[in-house]
Amino acid sequence: MEPAPQTRHPVEPLHVRKIYRLQQIRQLAPDIYVLRFDRNGMNFRAGQHITLGIPGNNQVREYSIYSTEKDPALEVLIREVDNGLVSKQLRKLIPGELLEVDGPFGYFTIPEQHLHKKFLFIGTGTGIAPFHSITGTYPNLNYAILHGVRYTRDACERHHFPRNKYLLCASRDTEGDFHGRVTDYLIQMTLDIDTKVYLCGNCDMIYEVYDLLTSRGFPSGNIKTEVYF
């Protein structure tokens, strides 16, 4: 391919994303951290996500908002991915440096008219993030959380959840509330058919839970999903 010889116009994307300032990084586990940054007046609904990247870098990724609607700053929960283009770069930032943020986006939220209903939240790994935001925003919500991790050390900031509403399923150690995967626990659970089930995390978990619930006659319309990839 023969390149054209002249100078080029620099180009900006159609939608210039907003620049936010990093306040703090909280390392919660060897490969899990929280980015805390200026909110800049962003209005969001608990459960929504944003896109995040380094200014000037072409790569952005979607992250659920971890902080509550009332928090003066924004937080996201990030797992550092091997060979990840964004998660590793973000971890190298130091407070005061800039982030490129767009959003909020998404519908993984609690509709006002459902606030009185019963909820089961199931998240794997950092898929706990939207539930952290939702339960912190609506502390009076009638809910239970199943959090699936491999090792108990990955159950970041679980003390933020009320002890009687949060159950940790650890598949590779016995330190959690239940030794096994969330689906193993779910099999034993009885579930009210009117419960609203929210699933967040890897696609395999979501598929397994979906199959498990629908095979027991649970209506698919009561299942909301947010796939992490």
């Binding site: 080029r8 180009v11 900006e12 159609l14």
Partner: peptide
């Protein structure tokens, strides 16, 4: 940018 003379958004 290396191939076209002008690259711009709509």
């Amino acid at each position: 940018l290396k191939l076209f003379d002008l690259v711009f958004t709509m």
